[in-house]
């Protein structure tokens, strides 16, 4: 019982960062109705820039965090300009394929910057774990939880309380109608990529700061975890992304506790498989609207 509670708490902590990764994914999916396969690699660009500053100049966690978020946002803008902005509506497959190509490009560019397989990453907070009776709590994990929740609140405020957020919701709801009520759809899409990649970058920073190391596999890792958490929660749903991240985090943690670390990723895929079979729309999902973003224009 004590183990169960401890594992669940650990899972929630990790799940929060999965949730943030999924929020970024879901924002982009909601706006363009396409998968951006370069999402994880954009985060990796930020992570490697942060690592570069840390390794070369001994930058502190705060500066590294800023560098990771900024680097990811810029990479996200680059991806949008290159893969998604030129493809108007119909050419969705071309966008996805080109985002796969950019994935390779970004990953290789970062490996040229930092060619070793593993680099150290600054810790979020140091200190001995706190003990509450039989339970332990790592201060850095608690800080990650708080920062993840704060980021979620900020993103929610941006989406529901700002002009940009309103535009984002309108484009997600009906792109053509959004044009016709005066939304600059082009800018909203660019902003969505920047915001999503920045959120993903911050999630990446939190995860790396807990692991205290970064490898070239991180881009793919971020894409896969974000994708699974998003699909469990439901495509295009922000609450779903958070729920999906938490579910994924908790179940992975239990799998690791019961079977061992090798079961972690296996369980994640198993969970995705079950979710697709039993509830294809995800926990919070519904079938995409028939008159969604890319229905025919010429009628």
């Amino acid at each position: 019982m004590i183990d169960f509670v401890q594992t669940t708490v650990d899972g929630v902590m990790v799940g929060c960062s999965y949730g943030l990764l999924a929020i970024g994914f879901t924002l982009i999916f909601g706006v363009i109705r396409r998968l951006n396969l370069s999402y994880g690699p954009s985060i990796m660009v930020g992570a490697y820039l942060g690592t570069f500053l840390y390794v070369q100049f001994g930058a502190g966690p705060l500066l590294v965090a800023v560098a990771v978020v900024a680097g990811a946002a810029i990479a996200g803008i680059y991806v949008e300009r290159l893969c998604f902005a030129p493809m108007k509506g119909g050419a969705g497959v071309a966008s996805m394929v080109s985002s796969f190509a950019i994935w390779m490009q970004l990953e290789q560019a970062m490996i040229l910057l930092l060619p070793r397989h593993t680099y150290a990453f600054p810790a979020l907070a140091t200190g001995a774990p706190w003990e509450f009776g039989p339970f332990t709590l790592r201060p850095d994990q608690l800080l990650m939880l708080i920062l993840a929740i704060a980021t979620g609140i900020i993103v929610n405020t941006i989406i529901y309380r700002t002009r940009f957020g309103t535009g984002l919701r309108l484009v997600t709801s009906n792109q053509i109608a959004a044009h016709l009520v005066g939304v600059n759809v082009r800018n909203v899409m660019l902003g969505a990529f920047a915001l999503a990649s920045a959120v993903g970058g911050f999630a990446g920073f939190l995860v790396l700061a807990i692991d205290q190391q970064v490898t070239p596999m991180f881009g793919m890792w971020a894409t896969i975890k974000g994708l699974i958490a998003m699909m469990i929660g439901g495509l295009g749903s922000v609450p779903g992304a958070i729920a999906g991240g938490l579910v994924l985090g908790v179940i992975e943690a239990h799998a690791q506790g019961l079977v061992g670390p090798q079961a972690r990723d296996l369980t994640a895929y198993l969970l995705l498989f079950l979710c697709l079979v039993l509830r294809p729309g995800g926990l919070f999902g519904k079938a995409p609207e028939a008159d969604g973003a890319f229905s025919s224009r010429s009628t």
Binding site: R169, S173, A177, H179, L180, G182, N184, E289, D291, T299
Partner: peptide, 24 residues
Amino acid sequence: LPTHIRVGMGIARTFQNIRLFGQL
């Protein structure tokens, strides 16, 4: 000019197949 600028200049329209913001 892009659509949103034209809307700002005073053009508005309805659609043959309705396009509302269903969740608002």
